Amino acid sequence: MAKAPEESRKTPPISTEFVVPQFTPNDYSKFFLAGALCCTVTHGGMTPIDVVKTRIQIDPALARKSLLAGGRYIVANEGPAALLTGFGPTAVGYLVQGGAKFAGYEFWKKQFCQIAGDQEAAVKYRTAIYLGASSVAEFFADILLTPLEATRIRLVSQRHYATGLVTGFTRLAREEGLRGLYAGFLPILCKQIPYAIGQFTVNEFCHELAFRNMSEETRRTLSPSATFGINLGSGVIAGFAAAILSQPADTLLSQINKGHGPEGSMVHRLTVLARQAGFRGLFAGLGPRMVMTAGLVAGQFLLYGGIKDALGAPPGLEIHKEVAKV
């Protein structure tokens, strides 16, 4: 019997494994500092608006007033300095939260790209990578934010509760312990994770859309004004998305701060309040919040990019489809 011819061996496929940037601890420290500064500046600048908004939510005397009328009422009765109540916890809270969120997003996006294993898979599953990286980064950032946000709410809602950040934080920790400091953790997660998803994911896809028909040469030679316009437009649209996605939880958090809802676990209270509000109720006041959030998110991205450049930080990891390179 004739010997069967030996099967020709197939040439092994060329590996498509890609090399991702190996960010150093120094790089992450720059990402953290840029994120910290951009968030503390933008949120700190919003302190007067936050004060009026919180007081409208909890003070019956202000319940039916607009932001402008509420601000005038507070200034007339308590002086202009009252509009800066809670500035310390806001500035410090979003300093640590912003640093952890932006640096965390860069870190987890890189980790998930490595898990994908190759360039094609990373591009194919980029939406899942954006969603996962923004969610995980925000979760850990909110661990840092929640105690300071609890302190801010106490300072704004209870006059004479404390003289500032340190005294307010220590009093809350002493009287209510860890439970009091983290009582609002679940509502904050429900609000901040959808917010971060809209902020980062939509911003990524806006940049992808803007760059889709550009050559590499065009991208490299973009003028500063064109780059600014793309970053501003992407940030504004991402801000709209962040506001829409987080609006239901923001509405419920306002109701919780007012003391509304039944007794019981936080999950039970949020569920009952959501049913009572209905779809339209959950999205009440969305328009003004979209405008405010668009300015906040766009400002953060513009500042983040500018501070990163000033610090000499490397560019973040890109997995846009039109670039097809990470």
Rank of each mutant, 00 (worst) to 15 (best):
G88Q: 04
A274L: 07
V202T: 11
T163F: 15
S157Q: 10
A324P: 02
A2H: 13
T47E: 00
P248T: 13
P224N: 06
H43L: 15
S66R: 04
T151G: 04
A61P: 07
A249W: 01
G264F: 11
T85I: 02
F32W: 13
V272C: 03
D59S: 08
R159K: 15
G71P: 00
G184T: 11
C113E: 04
K10T: 12
I256T: 09
F107Y: 14
G306A: 04
S223H: 02
R269I: 07
R55C: 04
S135P: 05
I74R: 06
E6W: 02
N26G: 13
E17G: 09
L165M: 07
L303C: 05
I74D: 00
R72S: 12
R64W: 01
F169Q: 01
L311H: 04
E149V: 10
Y304A: 06
A63Q: 15
A241V: 11
C38R: 00
A294T: 05
F112E: 06
F31T: 04
D27A: 12
T163V: 14
S246E: 12
Y94N: 01
G86F: 02
I58M: 10
A141F: 03
D142P: 08
I256K: 11
K65D: 08
E263K: 09
I49M: 08
L189Q: 15
E106F: 13
G88K: 03
Q119C: 09
E322M: 09
G184L: 14
E175L: 07
V123Q: 06
V96W: 04
G312Q: 06
P248N: 14
V92Q: 00
A173S: 11
E78F: 14
G235L: 08
P288F: 05
V96H: 02
L186V: 15
I319E: 03
P13A: 09
L145E: 10
Q276V: 02
Y195A: 10
G264V: 12
Q199T: 07
S223R: 05
F169V: 07
H260C: 14
H160S: 14
D250I: 13
A310E: 01
T11Q: 10
L131Q: 03
A196I: 01
D118A: 09
R280Y: 04
G229C: 15
E78Y: 14
I74Y: 02
E149C: 06
D50G: 12
E7W: 06
P5Q: 13
G229R: 13
A128N: 03
A76K: 15
P48W: 03
G98A: 11
A226F: 03
F211A: 04
V51N: 06
H207G: 06
I74N: 01
G299D: 01
E138W: 10
D50I: 09
A63E: 14
D309L: 06
